[in-house]
Design a protein around this nucleic acid. Structure first.
Length: 423
RNA sequence: GGUGAGGUGGAUGAGUGGCUGAAAUCAACGGUUUGCUAAACCGUCGUACGUCCUUAAAGAUGUACCGAGGGUUCGAAUCCCUCCCUCACCGCCA
């Protein structure tokens, strides 16, 4: 959620920034400013009258104590008259405030200054590439064929037991999942991230805090009996650890990492994009999250990008890093870097990580603040990134490390896998 | 799922209709004392949204908040209703 203060004082600038994100409903900005103005007027009036009511109520108490019943009765009537006018005013104030909140929730975060213009994924900017795309032998296979050749993943059984997008991993495939999760967590904790294992169901307040709700509930699985949502990423439960918390400045930065399965309905996805591991309803992911002082967040974002880059490099995969353009960025993000690895057999890039700085957008929704040295409370900045998402990493490992003798296991994974080659 | 007891400020915990935004203790912060540490003493010590004042900071002031939402009352932390949560015991169970 954008800070009202910014909207109030810099409405035109906000519109310029939102234009970079290709935001359509620009009139909402003016509505916020207008509703805010109205709310303040109403509150001033309400406060003043309520104050009078409170004063008189106290006086009634004093009159009663002195036994001056008639004078008290007289005052009671005066209060009653005043309150008759106060109720509609209170209602109006509440309605205005509700409208204001409703519109505030519809405004996406403002893109940072270095976010490139653009509308579609094609306009994202490649900031770096790394690794080398291997020359594969004749007859190389896409990962779904490799997965069945070596008995690693069973899509058909998943289909029967649950539905499409819910594969079974088995044998060395299952072990590879476990190895990757453990390697990623070890890598992250070695950099000072505290490990969490969160609940996989969250309540609506948490979905609201990180920005999935109210608009994107269609992307999450929902349990109506209990009012819980299956998490689409560990970001949701872990970031919400600090919902409604007032931190000390010495508590920052807070660095957290968590493995969790991720559940996504992916309504509206279809076609070749969903083949094999490219797009699933349930997948494994390890996430890193930081809560930091506002002045540090841009530097921390760079550090997190560098952290993820080292991880991708260690898996010996060809990759590139994109800075997302305004039109391709998420609702809550101020700036996002995507990591993609090259799927050599499919000859396309697959997103394996997305690292974002949300600045105060989530913190404002979550009311996560800290007291600075001057004793002023301000919102923290929140950041997160995948480190890493498993399925496409697995696809990349299978395709890029395939040989006639089997799949070469990257050196960093061999001790976790207990083997150098998957045969 | 059943029964019972509870949810008060960073923590413990008092408070059954007005003088309680809330005692007391602890923690925290600032200071005095001190060779250092400790102790002692003095002071400060909730949040949100407004208004006034100010270039701003500071300051003054109003309203709201004692799990959430409603209700009774001139007046509610305190009484009533609904919901949520926690704890204990029972049932069930990885």
């Amino acid at each position: 959620m954008l800070q009202l203060q910014v909207l109030r004082t810099r409405a035109e600038w906000v519109k310029e920034r939102l234009a970079v994100k290709r935001f359509q409903k620009m009139e909402l900005v003016d509505q916020v400013v207008q509703l805010d103005d109205q709310r303040r007027r109403l509150q001033a009036e309400f406060d003043q009258q309520q104050s009078q009511v409170n004063t008189w109520s106290k006086e009634i108490g004093q009159l009663m104590a002195k036994g001056e019943r008639d004078a008290a009765e007289e005052k009671k009537q005066a209060v009653a008259a005043l309150k008759a006018g106060l109720d509609p005013l209170k209602k109006q104030l509440q309605e205005t405030d509700a409208q204001l909140q409703d519109i505030l929730l519809q405004l996406p975060n403002l893109p940072a200054a270095e976010v490139p213009e653009g509308k579609t994924p094609e306009e994202n900017v490649v900031v770096r590439t790394g690794g080398t795309i291997p020359e594969l032998a004749e007859g190389c296979l896409p990962h779904w064929d490799l997965a069945s050749k070596y008995g690693l993943i069973d899509f058909e059984i998943g289909n029967k037991v649950t539905g499409s997008g819910f594969p079974f991993y088995r044998g060395k495939g299952a072990k590879l999942q476990r190895a990757l999760i453990q390697y990623f967590l070890d890598f992250n904790t070695a950099s000072g991230y505290e490990e969490f294992l969160p609940p996989y169901l969250v309540n609506a307040d948490s979905g609201f805090g990180t920005g999935q709700l109210p608009d994107k509930e269609g992307q999450m699985y929902f349990m109506p009996e209990d009012g819980y949502y299956l998490i689409p990423t560990a970001e949701v439960p872990v970031t919400n650890v600090y919902r409604d918390v007032l931190l000390k400045s010495t508590d920052l930065p807070i660095k957290m990492t968590a493995y969790s399965p991720c559940f996504r309905r992916e309504a509206g996805s279809y076609g070749k994009d969903v083949r094999g591991l490219n797009r699933l309803h349930q997948f494994e992911k390890v996430e890193i999250i930081q809560l930091v002082r506002p002045e540090n967040s841009h530097q921390v974002l760079d550090e997190m990008v560098a952290h993820v880059e080292k991880l991708v490099q260690s898996l010996e995969l060809p990759y590139r890093i994109l800075r997302l353009c305004g039109g391709d960025m998420g609702f809550a993000s101020a700036i996002t870097y995507d990591f993609e690895i090259y799927s050599t057999a499919q000859q396309r890039w697959l997103e394996v990580s997305s690292v974002s700085n949300f600045e105060s957008f989530q913190a404002n929704r979550m009311k996560c603040r800290f007291k600075d040295e001057e004793g002023k409370t301000q919102f923290v900045h929140s950041l997160n990134g995948s480190s890493l998402a498993l399925p496409r990493i697995v696809a990349g490992i299978l395709e890029n490390h395939q040989t006639v003798d089997g799949i070469k296991v990257p050196a960093v994974l061999q001790s976790y896998m207990g083997m150098a080659t998957i045969q």
